[in-house]
Design a binder for these strands. Structure first.
Lengths: 346, 346
DNA sequence: GTGAAAGCGCTAACAA
DNA sequence: TTGTTAGCGCTTTCAC
């Protein structure tokens, strides 16, 4: 049975199906399917014939049909949190890019969804149960949210970018960046420059990540016998807070350098310095965290801890593949080490 | 025929199907389908009974099956271009956020794919022909790329964020932001502040967008009889270029203000000012374009033209709905007007 | 190594 | 208003 006539060789009016290819190649539909998915099963000449037909017809497997049959979508769900205006949250966007790129090579695409509304978890549920996605990449645990528990209860396959803070017994796969190692690197770098009075501006105490990053700073200073008391401030993650906190610290603790939990806070420090006629890097050193675009373009360049987000994405996708394999495999959590990008500010 | 026993009421071992709901409600599968998709067709009491069964069973329609049957995926494809390190390209990320948010309300999700490789268009083709996405949102025409032609030839449904530069006869739906209006706004703002020698730093002449933005600046100045000759520079979109260009202009044209085609270039101007001990906003005014995070956090705040990306996303999704409706409808291109966010730099 | 049969879960078209 | 039939395009048995 012939299908609808092609209007042009380049743009068929109707997409060819397995059956079309099979007819053309003189084999059964099943053989074409095998040629696509298990080429090893075919005899070389059969395979060649089928592949030729595939090219001639411009056949591309229909995803919906395949998804229906295999009960998989080859889609990874990623929830986009609302934009944070006024902060330098480069990490998320860079991570998305890396994830898209990496997952492509693994045969996955990234499905973005926004998780706003009464129940932030609702989006996950629908997507999963409607078989729209195979798994999720969760970045919110990164903020200390215990939603991993919820997802596990729903048997939702997911890999977290961020440790299961406060739930060390968690059994889900995760990848994270060692914030303490990053700030230790930053602090060490400042010590190497001759600074000894190094202040910390970080987040409020209820932030696991904030405390982690703070730990790197305090550990290095204590190890070297330098003061930490009175040298630290815990504030909101805003430029304004960074500006305020650095002003107070400059007045009261006489630091010559600042390590900050974020580029946003570091930018706040730069505000204070500018207002006081001090030059970052020359008079006072400043180090931020995340190596955001802001750090890259501001004068004279903001030294910043850079998370290896490309590697994170690779590890996340690898964990995802393990998780979705049969049998499913969940490896140990992976902690990656950030680097320090040195620029003019210190 | 009873299905596999549920393990718990909350997490069924097997997702319920239409048939399960139908059996439970004592109706046919089709009626359940109607209850979900065309509730108006049902008698009130039948509808109620079916809905009750849906809730009890926690039924969620299987997307793959629906997609196969309806030949639609309710997915919008969006290509992610590689990250531009060292520039303040906030627009794309903000737009993605807006698009995700807006398309959700229209029942669409956003599928991200990366278009790298030998043929940048390959990704589009596969996605479309495999019925993975219903349509694309194309942001690259935004840079003047004529790939719209390619997509049209493939009969790929798409809406462009960006005018069909150089192809005014293009028939595809598009939404764009009036760059000239934005820079006109910026220039006018500077004139209102008393500036008369206002310099331009923009992109190379082969950039349609760059020329568009430049036109707003030059038009306003000419209208008011202020000089433009020797007041403009066309460079690469890098901080470094902005720094260089502003240095030269300051030396040779004696401007008191700069309007730039991007925040990246504006940041370059800030570098020059910092190096010369000049204060942005007080000594020299600087206006950028895009209202990036950089503009928001840098000292003393960078005045910048802000694109209404939320509105763009809304218009894009609306166009998409029109395009995918039957019969398909393509309205006129829509040009939105940006606003000016005034900060310390001018 | 290849083919035939069956069915994934859903909805368009029609019949009742 | 509701039910029946058929089939979307694919892959998983299981024959041959």
């Amino acid at each position: 049975m012939e299908r609808i006539t092609r209007i042009s060789s380049r743009v068929p009016a109707v997409a060819p199906t397995l059956a079309d290819v099979a007819e053309r190649a003189g084999v059964s539909r099943q053989t074409v399917s095998n040629a696509v998915n298990n080429p090893d099963l075919l005899r070389t000449d059969t395979l060649a014939r089928v592949q030729e037909a595939i090219v001639e017809l411009g056949y591309v497997p229909n995803r919906a049909a395949r998804n229906l049959r295999t009960r998989a979508s080859h889609l990874i769900g990623l929830r986009m949190s609302p934009v944070q205006e006024g902060t330098a949250n480069a990490a998320m966007d860079r991570f998305v890019h890396s994830l898209v790129w990496t997952s492509r090579e693994a045969g996955y695409h990234v499905l973005l969804f926004s998780g706003e509304g009464p129940d932030p978890l609702e989006g996950y549920d629908d997507l999963l149960r409607s078989t729209a996605v195979d798994a999720f990449v969760v970045t919110d645990t990164y903020l200390g949210n215990p939603q991993a528990t919820w997802l596990r209860d729903r048997r939702a396959p997911f890999v977290a970018f961020g440790r299961p803070w406060g739930d060390e017994a968690a059994k889900h796969p995760w990848v994270d960046v060692d914030g303490a190692a990053g700030t230790a690197l930053a602090t060490q770098h400042l010590l190497d420059q001759g600074h000894t009075r190094i202040a910390w501006i970080g987040w409020r105490k209820d932030s696991f990540i904030g405390e982690d990053r703070r730990a790197g700073w305090s550990r290095v200073l204590r190890e070297r016998g330098h003061p930490t008391t009175g040298m630290a401030s815990r504030v909101e993650d805003t430029v304004w807070s960074g500006r305020e906190a650095s002003g107070v610290l400059l007045d009261e603790a006489d630091p010559t350098a600042f390590v900050c939990a974020s580029d946003t806070l570091a930018m706040g420090v730069l505000h204070t310095l500018a207002e006081r006629g001090l030059h970052p890097g020359r008079d006072i050193a400043v180090v931020g965290f995340d190596d955001s675009q802001v750090a890259q373009v501001v004068h004279p360049g903001l030294t910043s801890v850079r998370q290896p987000l490309e590697e994170v994405a690779i590890a996340v996708v690898r964990s995802l593949e393990d998780l979705l394999a049969t049998p499913s495999y969940v490896g140990a959590g992976l902690l990656l080490t950030p680097t320090l990008t040195v620029r003019g500010s210190g």
